[in-house]
């Protein structure tokens, strides 16, 4: 997740299975914790924790996947571009 931001991603969303319905039992819970950890770190370093979000879906929910994508797109457009991108340009 952090590497994506380092490379200039404006936002990242992580999609896991529905909680309690994952074949790997706890993978989606661990993913959520990691997302929360990344949010805290991104807040601490001034990039903004809101740029990373966790969503849960079942494999048959295509329309909802699209809804989440739209939701995330709106969120990121409000936040503006990742400040790392302009910092990189300045440095170059």
């Amino acid at each position: 997740m952090l590497r994506a931001f380092e490379k200039g991603a404006d936002g990242v969303y992580v999609v896991g299975c529905m909680e309690g319905e994952c074949h790997y039992n706890s993978g989606n819970f661990r993913a959520r914790k990691r997302v929360e950890q990344a949010q805290k770190l991104l807040d601490a370093i001034g990039i903004g924790g809101e740029r990373v979000q966790m969503y849960n879906l079942s494999s048959g929910e295509g329309p909802r996947f699209a809804e989440y994508a739209v939701d995330m797109d709106e969120r990121i457009r409000k936040l503006g571009p990742n400040p790392i991108k302009s910092a990189k340009k300045k440095a170059a």
Partner: peptide
């Protein structure tokens, strides 16, 4: 190490 290094790189870049 990877997480800290990545976060620090972004922090310093953001600070110019």
């Amino acid at each position: 190490v990877g997480v800290l290094a990545s976060a620090l790189r972004m922090y310093f870049l953001n600070q110019g």
